[in-house]
């Protein structure tokens, strides 16, 4: 984090992070919410890689964008019906 350009890139990523979290909460529709949550996890991974935490970035990318998305989609498919 030495130059001004990296600082501006960090601010842009933080703004996208807040926007994606807000839209994951506010958007209607379960599958859309889950995909936006996956985008949120990928943005988190980019942020962690910028903040010198490469191990945490790899874990967040694999778990948040890969495993939890599959788990959420499975649960949404299992609870799809007239009730929800």
């Amino acid at each position: 984090m030495n130059s001004l350009g990296e600082y501006i890139a960090l601010i842009i990523i933080l703004a996208c992070l807040v926007l994606s979290a807000l839209s994951a909460v506010l958007i209607r529709g379960q599958i859309t919410t889950i995909i936006v949550l996956s985008v949120f996890s990928v943005l988190c991974a980019v942020l962690f890689a910028m903040l010198q935490a490469v191990d945490v970035a790899m874990a967040e990318a694999v778990i948040g964008a890969g495993f939890l998305t599959a788990l959420f989609v499975t649960a949404a498919d299992k609870t799809r019906g007239q009730g929800s």
């Binding site: 490469v54 191990d55 970035a57 790899m58 874990a59 694999v62 778990i63 890969g66 495993f67 599959a70």
Partner: peptide
Amino acid sequence: SPGGGFQGGVSLAVLVILTHV
């Protein structure tokens, strides 16, 4: 290098999910 048991293990689990899908 960056990584370890947790990250690689979750990648293997995602591959199992891929074969199922």
